Amino acid sequence: MQDNANFISKKFWQNTSIFIILLVSGLTACTSEPKQPDVVVVPTPQATVTVTATPTPTTNVVVTPDPQVTTIVQTEPITDVLVITNANKQTLVNKPVQFQNINVQSVVGDRAFWVGSSNTQRVFVVLAPNLDAGSAENQVVVKQGQILDLAGVLKPVPSVKQAQQQWKGLTATEAQGLKNQIIYLEANQIKFKSS
């Protein structure tokens, strides 16, 4: 029984000492500065967010393909056959031309001939009426192989029938071939360099 009494006494002191430790800890905690807790949970009301979509102006972007034909804005006279053969010919109507040392490829009528360096790089030329009238008619005789200086204005090619009527000596085949040319040079100045 004595063992039981020792056991109870021992337990009593253990419980008492635990009680005293807890009591001292509690009193110390109350008298010292309060520590800030790591996490504070405070219930808050749910916030409501309203999003209003405002229309923004749209920008239209237009993409066009690269042009297949070169458009030339010409303020000075055209001086190179390649400018005429490689351009959108309709944009060249009424543009001034001034060729120097240009080769006569062939003569197709009384007032009409081709100038240039090849069959793909050439321009159809018609002498203006002032170069084919009066005394000028006998003096202005263009021949194949001549080298000329020419000045004039690009004009639209007339219909096949009109071309044959206006330009004597032009065959139906030649007149039909002019339709693809779209424009021709009406030369109002000519200077013969050599033959």
Rank of each mutant, 00 (worst) to 15 (best):
I190A: 03
L185Q: 09
D149S: 13
T173K: 10
A151I: 00
Q165H: 01
T56S: 14
L131W: 13
S32W: 11
T79M: 07
T54N: 15
N119R: 08
P156A: 15
N6V: 08
N130F: 03
I182D: 02
N188K: 03
W167T: 02
V104D: 08
N180Q: 13
V115C: 06
T31V: 11
Y184H: 06
D66S: 14
F12G: 08
C30M: 12
L92I: 07
E174G: 07
Q68V: 15
S135F: 12
S118E: 07
V141L: 12
L131N: 14
E137I: 06
V24I: 15
A5S: 11
A133V: 15
S17Q: 01
V108T: 11
A187W: 00
S17R: 00
V126N: 04
I102E: 04
D66E: 13
K179A: 09
I183Q: 03
G145N: 08
V69Y: 07
L148S: 00
V42S: 09
F192Y: 06
V24K: 01
K89T: 02
I72T: 07
S194C: 05
N103W: 09
E174Q: 14
Y184Q: 05
G109H: 04
L150G: 09
N101K: 12
V142R: 08
V126T: 10
V153K: 10
N138Y: 09
P43N: 14
S194H: 02
I18Q: 00
F12M: 07
N188D: 15
V40F: 05
V39S: 07
L150C: 08
N119K: 11
Q105D: 12
K193S: 06
V93L: 09
I21Q: 02
E33W: 01
S25M: 05
A53R: 14
V157P: 02
N101G: 10
E33F: 00
Q144H: 06
F192L: 08
S17T: 01
S17A: 11
A151P: 01
D132K: 08
T50H: 09
T28Y: 10
S159T: 13
T59G: 04
P37N: 10
V63R: 08
D3K: 09
T59I: 13
Q139A: 13
P45T: 10
L22Y: 11
V83R: 10
K155N: 03
R111E: 12
K95Y: 05
A29R: 06
D3A: 08
V62G: 01
L131H: 12
S9L: 12
V123P: 04
I147K: 15
R111M: 09
K11L: 15
T71I: 15
L185S: 09
N101Q: 14
I78K: 01
Q2F: 11
D110R: 07
V107I: 11
A47M: 10
Q176H: 12
K89D: 06
T56D: 13
W114Y: 15
P37H: 07
P65R: 13
G109F: 02
V157N: 03
S194Y: 02
Q164N: 04
V69M: 04
Q181P: 01
G134V: 07
N130D: 14
V73R: 00
Q144G: 14
V41C: 03
W13G: 01
T56F: 10
T54S: 12
I78H: 05
T71L: 15
T120I: 13
S195M: 11
Q100A: 15
